[in-house]
Design a protein around this nucleic acid. Structure first.
Lengths: 340, 340
DNA sequence: CTGAAAGCGCTAACAA
DNA sequence: TTGTTAGCGCTTTCAG
């Protein structure tokens, strides 16, 4: 592998000057710059990031922390899409992404230790609230970090505007003429869950619609099984008077509702309108396609990258927004119906 | 940040001895080892991987190359699950995963250049055939690499046993009494597509079932839209005589078939049995759940990691299997039915 | 505008 | 068993 010494030797200039042209520094004669650049090209020289990092204390690497549980982390479409957006803009800003393992060889390593070991410049926290225990050591380390999905004190968080999401879903249903709208809420120990439910209640109030407790159930988890349970409970609670529409605060719940209702002889959307939330792949795969509120995951990732890089590069103590909201968007498909 | 110099100063031993205990080398008095270890613990010292890499030429990093197109790469459940498996076993073997960008700052960088820049020890190619152009420069670089999904000459490939998959699907259908089995083949410019179709034809032959060309269509891509097109073509071709079962070589096609057939008044599985392939999330989400052949992605990832690390660590020119097959498994759900 | 030299933190001969 | 020393490839003062 060529080094700056090779370039130096071949061109007759010192390694210092070579280094200067590599880094596009000023204070180099245009002529010598040309010569050196040509030689670099000719020899196919590529700088060594390791040596550079050792000298500058800057690795141009961002660590990313995921959960490693079944169905979560990188294999979940929500996170992988955020990562995609993050990676792309971080890349354009010059940073590569490194995945932190909780192992270093056979030895267990905390995420914080691992960050130090690898000299990463920043970290992206992409974990749900119930993973907090395993990353809390990282919260104390002084390195810049941002979070998506879960809010940690002192860590700028980039997250969907869940209130907007809930409102968009409700507004759509209301515009279609629905007044008796039930909801399957997401777990209330997550922000998304709380805010979507809050939006539901606020919408009712603002539009002088009655809030009926029996129209409101909470799923225990973000998955279809929990959704099934919640739907069954809802149906049981509403035996006397059915809603005409459901705002399912997570697409899996919408999916569960469709399945159960269809089985019970309901026609979707004629007998029951359903709006999901998130626009997971299943929403468009399902038949009929599920009307839902899309999270702009690309943008969440992109904003997270931008803010993180800002934090890394502007060492000055400027303050970063504790929480950045990314707008959501209603996607109308076939599970919602104009009430006659 | 503490360095070995700090440990050296505090304990009175030289940095060489400190280094030796850090690396668990022999030739250090047990007593001094204890002392040094204690001090390391006390000061919370953590070695600096950058300095280590510079000195040893080994980064303990594996690069991973993904496609960056819509719906492919990391956001596709197939790849993200493989990555999950890969990451886990690579991690236990001491390696971290780094994502290569095609950018270094504003400058475009080839994957090969990027590998050199980052001093990675090996690379995992996780791309489909139609991405070959963009990675072919990496094929020439001398660094160890493995591939999943696509076969490149000279690169050990770890991939599902697609023949087994096709056979398992067909056998299941045959055992249920089906003789008129159609197939929706996956693109024939991919190995998976070719092998699954081959298995279909071989199965027919081995069991003296007639091969009818009109029972066999090929989708253009690995997605639902292509599946829809293929299914419509199939139905058109079979107007005279319908099959009683379909082997859809990709779950999206199975999904498409279900949707179209249901709409046309078929009852699934009573009127038509369907077996998919891959066990993507949609297969279990769908209602009825799709019987399919599962790819063991965890294992693909794990094997890939093992082989790659072997290649990295055993410099000797031992030969690695050009292609490693990972067994598949039939997952019976509700879209297959015993023919009366 | 150019270059000499120190240093980033660690490893690995080689001496002692 | 321990320590000295010379790098690894690059950046960065500071002289010239």
């Amino acid at each position: 592998m060529e080094t700056i010494y090779d370039i130096s030797r071949e061109t007759g200039f010192s390694i210092a000057t070579v280094s200067k042209v590599i880094n596009n520094y000023s204070g180099v004669n245009e002529k010598t710059r040309k010569i050196i650049k040509a030689k670099i090209e000719e020899m196919g020289f590529m700088p060594n990031s390791t040596a550079r990092t050792l000298a500058t204390k800057k690795s141009w690497m961002i660590a990313i922390v995921f959960e490693e549980e079944q169905g979560a982390g990188i294999v979940h479409p929500h996170y992988s899409n955020i990562l995609q957006g993050f990676k792309q803009t971080a890349g354009k800003l010059g940073y590569d992404i490194i995945f932190l393992n909780s192992f270093l060889g056979e030895k267990r390593l905390s995420f914080a230790e691992h960050c130090r070991f690898r000299n990463v410049d920043g970290v992206l926290l992409a974990v749900s609230a119930n993973f907090t225990d395993q990353i809390k050591d990282i919260l104390d380390v002084e390195i810049p970090k941002v979070s998506v999905e879960t809010v940690y004190p002192g860590v700028p968080t980039i997250i969907s505007d869940n209130k907007m999401a809930g409102k968009q879903a409700m507004e759509h249903l209301y515009m279609l003429g629905h007044k008796k709208i039930a909801t399957i809420a997401a777990p209330q120990d997550t922000i998304a869950g709380r805010e979507r439910l809050q939006a539901y209640r606020e919408f009712l109030k603002e539009n002088n619609l009655e809030y009926r407790p029996q129209f409101c159930v909470e799923a225990e988890k973000y998955n279809k099984t929990a959704g099934m349970k919640a739907v069954n409970l809802l149906l049981q609670q509403c035996r006397d008077e059915f809603p005409t529409a459901i705002y399912a605060a997570y697409d899996d719940y919408a999916c569960a509702a469709m399945e159960i209702l269809t089985e019970k002889g309901f026609k979707i959307p004629e007998d029951m309108s359903i709006v999901g939330n998130d626009d997971l792949p299943i929403a468009s795969y399902a038949s009929p396609g599920i009307t839902t509120v899309r999270q702009n995951r690309d943008d969440i990732g992109a904003q997270a990258a931008k803010i993180l890089v800002d934090m890394i590069e502007k060492k000055d103590q400027m303050v970063y927004p504790e929480i950045t909201r990314i707008p959501t968007k209603l996607i109308v498909r076939q599970t919602t119906f104009k009430k006659k």
